[in-house]
Design a protein around this nucleic acid. Structure first.
Length: 598
RNA sequence: GGGGUCGUAGCUCAACUUGGUUAGAGUAUCGGACUGUCGAUCCGAGGGUUGCGGGUUCGAGUCCCGUCGGCCCCGCCA
């Protein structure tokens, strides 16, 4: 490296005209006019145009002609104000250019597999394989730099609020509940394994017991479950825990933080306090526990109207404890048969067995329901449905009859899908709300046992704690989720801080004294020694960054993400390992017969 | 575990309904022309085991089965 850079490619201005500079960067683009050659030189900070003029220096012009896109070079030259009429107003450095005097090619680039431009058109597969090139694109670089700003804002805010950043271990004890663990074999103890943490949960509680009072960590977490657009096998949490607090304290602190972050990162003022919705209310009105409250179209329950109407399908569902839930898609009565079939297929994905629709039409001065199903509803019932759904002529009513969970989920999803289709969602707004009063437990379909809805360290509410033994499904948790535009971005709870209550909750979960001792003995033990009341929250950091940037996939805000099969296309991980490594760990790979024949 | 969708030139796609001669285009690359461009422009050239394996057929990019991979979704994700 002969030439040492004096400036970056984004900072030279007209006031620098006449000075000699050295720039280093990548060849973004080359425009050769025969008698004049322009090279755009790019680095993280910007793009500067370099001019090669054969009349000034023919040999240098010849060198410039040989420059390949994406090569790294250094240029020595003199800053010049661009001739009149040649200013590029779209570029920060568009008023100046560099007259090249010397070029040093630091590393000539092979032809890249795709063009390094925002609209590169390359598939995600190719982009992930060549992620270092993908990250050279402006959008991706800005995503990553924005992410950096989010880290810094969080750290600044929390530090000023008295929170201490502490790292917790990533080689930890595997616990039975929750997601599947990623396991790491121990060499010193063959046959034993560490797990990678699904969250720093227990350790942050131990920090509270240790008296740190206020803790945070930007922590990597690992869950070996199937991937989605908003889920990665390893992801980042902003993890927070506080002592001597109740729900309102944690909520207030986080409202302050989110308000600060929105202002600091986006310049947006959000009002506090945020709306609060009880879990039951969220389900009834929106069908989902992460409601998108940017628009209305709330769910309507017409079970009572359908209970004794002539429509057998609905009757049977209501008779067996199900419900008939629906929504009013305003002005959508022009939906075609094909569109309705698509919506039916869509609710089918969430387990609904069908979708009943009515088009609302005016007939002789009154509104009536039109559809193949309408004949099963007499005039009185039709009017009740119209009344309940606040329907007007031109509306489309859609209903799902099923068990309460399936019906609400299906209609809740349908609501969001229709809102997108009908363009009901306001752009560039953030609607934040807290969902509270979650049930402590839910029935695990596979085992039929109770499972913690949040996690087994969540405290029940005082009002429902005594239902733990007899009516556990009625017990409510001191838990809260923060939902932004229908996306859950944070969740937390007030924790259990006595061994007695912790044992009762474990028992309700079917975790016996002995098992609890083996798996969580260290926590129960710790709760004996002056464990203070405490609670906290964890943000899905990647999701939070993504939603602030207005994108719905977290891969684009992660520098090196994994695919939906949890592989790294760049490095090829996971990969087989040497036999010697397995021997050291005393591990043997059992090959399935089928796969060995491949 | 299940459903959907895609896989053809370096990259993004086309080759249809209904299997049929030499698999096309844009872009990138290479060569040439050009004194002010900024996604420069113009002319020309090269570039293919149609992901992989098997089957059906006189004949397969196209149909069937399997498999690998990308993406989306259900289940799962305390």
């Amino acid at each position: 490296m002969k030439l040492k850079r004096t400036h970056t490619c984004g900072e030279i201005a007209v006031t620098d005209a006449g000075t000699e500079v050295v720039l280093s960067g990548w060849v973004e683009n080359k425009r050769d006019h025969g008698g004049m050659l322009f090279v755009d030189l790019k680095d993280r900070y910007g793009i500067t145009q370099v001019v090669f003029d054969p009349q000034r220096n023919e040999a240098l012009y010849a060198e410039g002609k040989e420059l390949k896109p994406e090569s790294v070079i250094s240029i020595r030259g003199v800053v010049q104000r661009r001739p009149e009429g040649n200013v590029n107003p779209d570029r920060k450095t568009g008023e100046i250019e560099i007259i090249a005097e010397e070029v040093e090619v630091l590393n000539r680039s092979a032809t890249p597999p795709f063009e390094i431009v925002d609209d590169c058109g390359a598939s995600e597969e190719v982009r992930m394989k060549y992620r270092y090139l993908d990250l050279r694109r402006d959008v991706m670089r800005e995503n990553i730099i924005f992410r950096h700003r989010v880290y810094q804002s969080m750290r600044r805010y929390l530090s000023e609020e008295g929170f201490i950043e502490v790292e917790t271990p990533t080689l930890i004890k595997s616990t039975p509940e929750g997601a599947r663990d990623y396991l790491v074999p121990s060499r010193k103890f063959s046959g034993r394994f560490f797990a990678l943490p699904q969250s720093p949960q227990i350790f942050k509680q131990l920090l509270m017991i240790a008296g740190f009072d206020r803790y945070f960590q930007i922590a990597r977490c690992y869950r070996d479950e199937d991937i989605r657009a908003d889920r990665q096998p390893e992801f980042t949490q902003l993890d927070i825990e506080m002592t001597f607090v109740d729900e309102d304290d944690v909520i207030a602190m986080n409202e302050g933080q989110v308000r600060f972050l929105m202002k600091d990162l986006l310049g947006i003022e959000v009002g506090t306090p945020f709306k609060r919705l009880a879990f039951d209310e969220a389900l009834k009105k929106y069908g989902l526990d992460a409601p998108d409250i940017r628009f209305g179209m709330t769910l309507v329950d017409v079970s009572d109207v359908c209970a004794d109407a002539g429509f057998k399908v609905f009757q049977a569902v209501v008779a067996s404890g199900g419900i008939v839930a629906g929504i009013n898609a305003k002005g959508a009565s022009n939906y075609s048969r094909r569109q309705l079939d698509e919506l039916t297929a869509y609710v089918g994905e969430y387990g609904a067995k069908g979708l009943v629709w009515f088009k609302v039409e005016e007939e002789g001065g009154t509104n009536v329901l039109k559809s193949p199903t309408a004949k099963f509803f007499d005039e009185g019932r039709q009017q009740k449905i119209i009344e309940k759904t606040k329907a007007e002529a031109g509306d489309l009513l859609l209903f799902v009859a099923d068990g309460p969970d399936v019906a609400r989920t299906a209609v809740g999803r349908l609501r969001v899908r229709l809102a997108r289709q009908l363009d009901l969602i306001p752009k560039n707004t953030f609607e934040l709300c807290w969902v509270t009063e979650f049930p402590m437990f839910e029935v695990d379909e596979e085992s039929g046992r109770l499972a913690a809805r949040h996690h087994p360290f969540t405290s029940p509410t005082p009002a429902t704690v005594d239902d733990l033994e007899k009516k556990p499904l009625r017990v409510r948790a001191r838990a809260y989720d923060l939902v932004v535009n229908g996306v859950e971005i944070a969740g937390g709870s007030i924790r259990i801080n006595t061994p007695e209550l912790q044992r009762r909750v474990f028992k309700a979960l079917g975790i016996g004294e002995k098992e609890a001792g083996e798996k969580f003995g260290f926590l129960i033990e710790a709760l004996k020694y002056g464990a203070p009341p405490h609670g906290g929250i964890a943000y899905g950091f990647d999701r939070f960054v993504a939603i602030l940037r207005g994108i719905d996939r977290i891969r684009d805000v992660i520098a090196f993400p994994k695919t939906t099969t949890a592989q790294c296309l760049l490095s090829g991980a996971p990969s087989p390992v040497d036999e010697k490594q397995l021997e050291e760990l005393k591990l043997k790979i059992i090959r399935e017969r089928d796969s060995s024949e491949r």
